[in-house]
Structures are given as structure tokens and as C-alpha cells.
């Protein structure tokens, strides 16, 4: 950010700019070829999503012609028992996944940041594995594990029947949390921890009153990441889900296989809105955080 002043052209002072001014040498966004590319990219990224959302309000069954505005598809989606159940399942899994991933992720981050121990490189490398291993490989590993090594008991009461999926989600989500929290820990002044201990705080109090408050923005960002990763996951869930443990993406997938009706559009629109709100809240929290802390 420091070199910002270098590129912003001095005579751009005010908010108003003269209409025919030549763009500065490095103001690439003000050159038309790049504007066209950026614009086209944004259309490419958003046109499908906006179309999807718009047609969830369309009276016609076919997603082609606009015929009139309706909430029918939302009503249908809300009355679709199994779709609703899948949505609740997804949120439940995402909630438990987030809580446990944040705890495990924070612990791994602190472990790698604070200690030197034999085999640290191996542990560090293994922690990175869930991030890089292809989803399909992890999916089949979970399938095999829950089918042969540790079968999840059948017929458990809800939410316990979601255990296998939740465990699988935690396994890929917590290393992401660890990465985010560790980045945050890099800016922690270790002397603060020593000072707390010198002043007589116990190991636990130091952790809870000194380290955790510093990690907080990282924990929030990690929690959001874990929540969205869990809510978003299809492939790994597809391999661990049973007939009575359907999540939202798996349900949408089977609806898509069956027939594409605007009901799917309506359900998807709800999920998109939920995700966008969550992301906005998360960004807001992160933007506010440094101001409070630096004061």
C-alpha cells in the first residue's frame, strides 16, 4: 500500500476529473482494452448466477422465457420436506464443523508457532495434505474409512447420524483454519506471553487472556472459512452421505439429475443469499477489528 502515492497521478486531486484527460502510464484500468476484459470477465462470472436468481421468480417452468413474477417456487421449495431437511442438515453439519475446526485449527496453529519438537516438519507437511489432496481422493478415503474401519452406527438419532459427514468435513476444514490463525499469530509479540507469565499468570490464563484475544480476528476468519467450506462441499459429502443423511448440495445434485425446475433455482438463490450475507458479515468484522486493536 505504501507505493500507492507513486502511481496516483498528482493532478487527480479532487473527486471530479476532467472528461478528456489521458490515463496515467500505469492506470491500466482506465485503458479501454483492459476495461473490456474486466467487464467481460465480470459478465462471465455473474451472468449465470444472476440468470439463475432471476428465473427463480419466473412463472414458466422452463428457464428460458420470462413470463411473470411469482413466489411459487419458493413456496414449493419450502414445502419440500426432504429439501428442507437437507438444508437443516447442511447448516447443522457446518455449525459443528466450524466449532471443532476452529478449536483444532487454533491448537495446531499455536503448536506450530510456539514449539520446537522432533518431527515438526512431518507434522507441518501432513497438516498441509488435506489442503492439497484432490477432493475425490479424500472422498474415497472417507468412504472406505467409514465403510470398513470405523462404521458409523446406523439408525442414530438426528444430529448424531450426521457424525460421519461432520468428521470428514472437520478433517479438511481445520488445516485451513490453522493456516489462517497461524498467519495472524506471526504478528504476535512473544514477549507479551512471557510478561504475563512473569507476572504470575498460569499457562492456561496466559493462553486464554493474552493469546486468544490476539488470535481473535484469525479465529473469526477461520470460522467463516470452515463454515463456507463445509456448506459448499459436495464431493466429500457425496461419498460419506447415506440415504437418510442428505445435505443440501447432495439433494440439489439429485434434483438436477431428476429434472431441472425453478424450484432448484429458488433453493440455490436462498443458499447464495445466505453465503453472501455471511461473507459480508465476515468482511465487516475483519475490517473493524484492526481499528479496535491498534488503538
Amino acid at each position: 500500500m505504501a507505493d500507492q502515492g507513486l502511481t496516483s497521478v498528482p493532478f487527480l486531486g479532487g473527486g471530479k476529473r476532467p472528461p478528456k484527460e489521458k490515463p496515467g502510464p500505469l492506470e491500466y484500468l482506465r485503458r479501454w482494452p483492459l476495461r473490456v476484459i474486466v467487464g467481460a470477465t465480470l459478465v462471465f462470472l455473474y451472468l449465470p448466477l444472476i440468470t439463475l436468481m432471476v428465473f427463480s421468480f419466473n412463472t414458466s417452468r422452463r428457464n428460458v422465457v420470462w413470463q411473470g413474477f411469482t413466489f411459487d417456487w419458493y413456496e414449493k421449495a419450502f414445502n419440500n420436506e426432504s429439501l428442507l431437511q437437507a438444508f437443516v442438515n447442511s447448516l447443522t453439519i457446518a455449525f459443528f464443523c466450524t466449532v471443532i475446526s476452529v478449536i483444532l485449527g487454533a491448537l495446531s496453529a499455536v503448536m506450530l508457532w510456539r514449539f520446537r519438537f522432533p518431527g515438526k516438519t512431518v507434522v507441518e507437511g501432513s497438516m498441509a495434505l488435506p489442503i492439497v489432496v484432490p477432493e475425490i481422493c479424500m472422498g474415497v478415503a472417507m468412504l472406505v474409512f467409514f465403510a470398513r474401519v470405523m462404521p458409523w452406527p446406523m439408525g442414530m438419532p438426528w444430529p448424531l447420524n450426521l457424525g460421519a459427514i461432520t468428521i470428514a468435513h472437520i478433517s479438511f476444514a481445520f488445516p485451513f483454519v490453522a493456516t489462517v490463525v497461524r498467519a495472524r499469530l506471526a504478528s504476535f509479540n512473544r514477549e507479551l506471553e512471557e510478561a504475563a507469565k512473569d507476572l504470575g499468570a498460569s499457562e492456561w490464563r496466559t493462553f486464554w487472556d493474552v493469546l486468544v484475544p490476539h488470535m481473535q480476528p484469525g479465529l473469526i476468519a477461520g470460522a467463516l472459512l470452515a463454515f463456507t467450506l463445509s456448506l459448499d462441499d459436495f464431493v466429500i459429502t457425496f461419498f460419506t452421505a447415506g440415504p437418510d443423511t442428505i445435505t443440501f448440495p447432495v439433494k440439489v445434485y439429485s434434483m438436477l439429475r431428476f429434472s431441472v425446475t425453478p424450484e432448484v433455482n429458488a433453493a440455490s438463490t436462498i443458499l447464495i443469499v445466505v453465503t453472501v450475507i455471511l461473507t459480508a458479515v465476515g468482511l465487516q468484522m475483519q475490517n473493524n477489528e484492526p481499528k479496535d486493536k491498534k488503538a
Partner: peptide
């Protein structure tokens, strides 16, 4: 778009 569900994005592309 990166935060929205992969399945939904793919489905949107089908339409």
C-alpha cells in the same frame, strides 16, 4: 462467486 456453492455455479452454467 468463489464463495458460492460449486454445485450451484455449475448448475447456473447449465441454464
Amino acid at each position: 462467486p468463489f464463495w458460492t456453492n460449486l454445485l450451484i455455479r455449475t448448475f447456473a452454467l447449465i441454464a
